[in-house]
Design a protein around this nucleic acid. Structure first.
Lengths: 339, 339
DNA sequence: ACTGGCACTCGAAACGCGGGAGTGCCAACA
DNA sequence: TGTTGGCACTCCCGCGTTTCGAGTGCCAGT
């Protein structure tokens, strides 16, 4: 039903609309692209495309703009991810290599993504579950309050405060510290929880309540539920969304405040090489019906550590954006693998 | 030159304009406030106020709006900081008390400030310089890469990676760790640097380059230059700035990305009890000429730890905003003092 | 010193009106 | 059957004009 030329027309419409943000008509279309047919023919094709739901017109006797379905077809079938130039790649690589710790990697990544794509960038911190324990530290803050610090193989540092309810002997703290480290260091976080389960039993009964409390907190830190950290950047790019402030910009700004929403937007971390594109109404929030999300997982080789991506108007330049997201994800993975 | 009634008029103008965001005329003024005089009289007063530079009219035959000088006079002389209600205070207190660590305190504070003031909130992390060393940890990540973790008395955790250039014996790491802790724990960060200076000399010459590298990194972490962390929240409140998107919202969004700018905006941390208000052009960035900053220092008793505040349009409700900022700063100080 | 009255100003909203980009349809043509 | 030029039609957009009214400044009167 959609022959080659109709697809060409759709592609041309998407490209033009993305470039100009104005409804595109048959005349301007044949002018700008060399389609080799007359405007009248294009009009017929447009009528079909509209009937099929790929394009629409804001009002009678205006040009056409792509629908969400149109963009979907475009990214699936009509476009190829546009790779970055060599110099861009070089720039990414050196900029990321300058990071001093994990936090810095994430901050730089956000900034980079936002700058390249000129959209709002979102980067999820590497999850704990897949990494292993590098070190556990127990520090006495006050006699009744301990600070637990967990350092993972990805360089992430997780800290928790434990209220003990009663004074804790420094001797016991030292004992705990050494025992925790000998039993946990090098273990995957997922395996570590089972080891932790039996730990209290190896202590004298009087100390067990305290040890249990500690263990509970550690397991909580391991399983990492409830707090998935996220970094956001490039909000200033929202100013390029065009007018209709209330409908386009506000919901995005609100979403950026709610990290839970952002996590849902980024979606599940699948394979590091797969790009996820959610277009308009495809994403789980109605208020964001005019925005698209381009996301991908990053991490070592086959294992996904976390997700990163961008949020932008549906009428974005998908090929370039996807190329940028993919490239950044790759380089971050690389940097993290080296660490 | 400005008698009592003229000041009353100015106050009324500011209050009305803040409430409605529309130029206020003589008629509406006497209607809404009981000034006890006729519109004509008010008009005369307005003429004087305008001549003195406290108010202006957007165009002939429109109402008046306050100038920056007008707002300045208002906050300095014509208004009192509005204290929060008991229930609000209660809410703040309990919400902040729920924090589990320093990061959480800061995150909650930002959220709180943004929510109460309905403005963009900025909170600077407690600076290191005034706090003391709780613990130093050295962890081997790879044979040639060490991770330094510094835990301060404020609960802040600072991490740095040190590239050693050559393999490091685990024995040496353990030695370093214990020596660092014995010599530093409990010391003020400012004092700690001098102790660190002589540390390399106590090691055998062959190890000194490595130790020096470590020490340099630590001192860097102590003095904390170049990286003052900041948390931002409530960007969604920018949508209430009114129209003129390009001029009002964009510069703020851009500033929020640049933490260096934000630090300058917050200004020097003075006394914890003093509120700093920068109105319009008074702040150091021309692009932010339509925005005001309300900031204050927080920290224990007499010593300022860091600064927090809000950024909003010049036509904000100063009394309430100032009350909220002051209250939040107080409660944060309290929470941190308890830790 | 305050007030009522009055003429004046000037932006905002309402209205009307081409111009033009774009469409759909149809008849003609390859 | 698919393509094309022609043509009438639609309706948004931009523009100038008008009207409306809130607000002002000034002045004379109390």
């Amino acid at each position: 039903m959609l022959d080659e030329r109709k697809l060409d027309v759709l592609r041309a419409i998407v490209e033009d609309y993305v470039a100009t943000h104005e409804p595109v008509g048959s005349k301007t279309l044949v002018d700008r692209h060399s389609l080799g047919v007359s405007p009248a023919t294009v009009r017929n094709d447009m009528a079909v495309l509209e009937e099929e739901g790929y394009i629409t017109q804001p009002h009678t006797s205006a040009g056409r703009i792509p629908t969400d379905a149109g963009y979907r077809l475009f990214v699936d079938k009509l476009s190829t991810v546009k790779p970055l130039s060599a110099t861009e790649k070089k720039a990414i690589s050196t900029f990321l290599a300058g990071a001093v710790d994990l936090d810095d990697v994430v901050r730089r990544t956000v900034r980079l993504l936002a700058q390249i794509t000129r959209q709002v960038a979102i980067v999820q911190y590497p999850t704990l579950t897949r990494s292993s324990v590098r070190h556990v530290e127990v520090v006495t803050m006050t006699p009744r309050r301990l600070l637990l610090v967990l350092i993972t193989s990805t360089g992430r540092v997780e800290q928790r405060i434990v209220e003990t309810g009663e004074d804790v002997a420094e001797q016991l703290v030292a004992d705990l510290r050494s025992r925790l480290n000998t039993s946990l260091t090098g273990k995957r976080l997922t395996d570590a929880t089972s080891v932790l389960g039996v730990l209290p039993d190896t202590f004298p009964p009087v100390d067990r309540p305290l040890v249990s409390a500690l263990v509970t907190t550690l397991i909580e830190a391991f399983t990492d539920e409830g707090e998935q950290r996220i970094a956001v950047g490039g909000a200033a790019n929202l100013t390029r969304y065009g007018d209709d402030f209330e409908r386009n910009v506000k919901p995005v700004l609100e979403a950026l405040e709610e990290h839970v929403i952002l996590l849902k937007l980024l979606g599940e971390a699948t394979h590091p090489r797969t790009l996820t594109v959610r277009i308009g109404h495809e994403n789980p929030y109605e208020e964001l019906a005019t925005t698209s999300v381009v996301a991908t997982a990053y991490g070592s080789k086959s294992e996904a550590l976390a997700t990163l991506g961008i949020v932008g108007p549906t009428h974005m330049d998908y090929p370039s954006t996807m190329g940028a997201v993919r490239a950044v994800a790759r380089y971050v993975s690389q940097i993290l693998a080296d660490s």
